[in-house]
Amino acid sequence: MAAENLTRNDPNTTGPDYAEQKAETLPQPASSKESHSTIVDTARLWTSPRTVFLTRHLMGDVDPLQSTFPLAAYCFMTGFIDSVSFTAIFVWCGFQTGNSVQLALALARLFSGPPGQRDTSFHLADQQALCSVLTFVAGASLGRIGDRMGPKSRAWLFLGTLIQALFTMAAAIAAWKSGQGSIAEIRGNPAWTNALTFVAVGFMSASLGLQGIMGKRVNTQFATTIVLTTVWCELMADPKLLNLRQRVISRDHKLIAIVALFLGGFVGRAIIDAVGAASTLGVGTGMRFLIAVWWLFVPGKPGKSGKPASA
């Protein structure tokens, strides 16, 4: 009662101007803020270069909402790497659904036809698909290192992406040393057939396997940054899909992922036509290194003071 009487008698909390004064102290509604594009508004590099190599900064977690650019670059690299493998041997190094079904068909072929006339050979295309599946899983298993360092820490995101770059470089060297071509005209006549090209396929698949689990651990709308079937389904199911006047991260980031992967495939094939698979993988190595460095500058989540946690 005393507090109520005090409020009633306080001239600052009564009178015809009270409601207007109270409204001035409230935050402005989100819809009144200045609008920016989703990709720019969620990918600002706030981290000062002077703090990049501090232990506290390296072991700190990135803000997933500010990781748009490097994750979009991951999606780009998926299309880029897959363009090399599919152009040479019609096998996807990143999309293991197709490779798994291909191996299932190869097993079913053993029981097709009358006894004594069955095809029991292990076709080259099936060998390449098996190589891709196994090395993809091996590369993904390396992502467990991040569970100890911190899956969202800058140190792991930098180190893991650097390992991807080394895998891509090893694939480039193997493809170069193989002495084989880069483009297969028909599925039954792959451009890569010798042992060194199997090594190239293995390292490419391992790099994407590691990338996939790292992208998943960041936990954003980009998902694994590799398989986009789920992203397509979630995009079409988004209730705000057609709300074009408002920024919707769940929709916009999925669109960015799809477009980035498409561009990666397009750019990859263009470079293959110009300089070949080995040089294309060399370019991919440089791109992965730049992405690794990029992770060091991604800010952390804002602290209570409104400043980035890494500042």
Results as ranks from 00 to 15, higher is better:
G94Y: 01
S83M: 08
M59Q: 13
T97E: 05
F76S: 07
F76D: 02
L58A: 14
L54C: 10
L103D: 00
R56T: 15
I89R: 02
L54H: 14
A72N: 06
R56H: 10
D82M: 09
A88D: 03
T47Y: 03
F90H: 13
S48F: 08
F95M: 09
T68H: 08
A106I: 01
L71D: 00
L107M: 14
W92R: 04
N99I: 13
I81M: 07
V84I: 12
Q102Y: 08
G98M: 08
D82V: 09
D63T: 13
L71F: 05
T47E: 11
Q96T: 14
G98C: 06
D61T: 13
I81N: 03
L71N: 02
Q102S: 10
F86G: 02
D63I: 07
F95L: 09
F53D: 11
M59K: 12
S85V: 04
R50D: 15
G94K: 00
V91W: 00
G60V: 13
Y74L: 12
A73Y: 08
M77T: 15
F76H: 04
D63Q: 11
I81A: 07
A73V: 13
R56S: 11
S67E: 05
Q102V: 07
F90C: 06
G98P: 08
C75R: 00
V52E: 04
T68L: 09
V91N: 10
T78Q: 04
Q102P: 02
T78D: 08
A88P: 04
D63P: 13
L107G: 12
F80V: 09
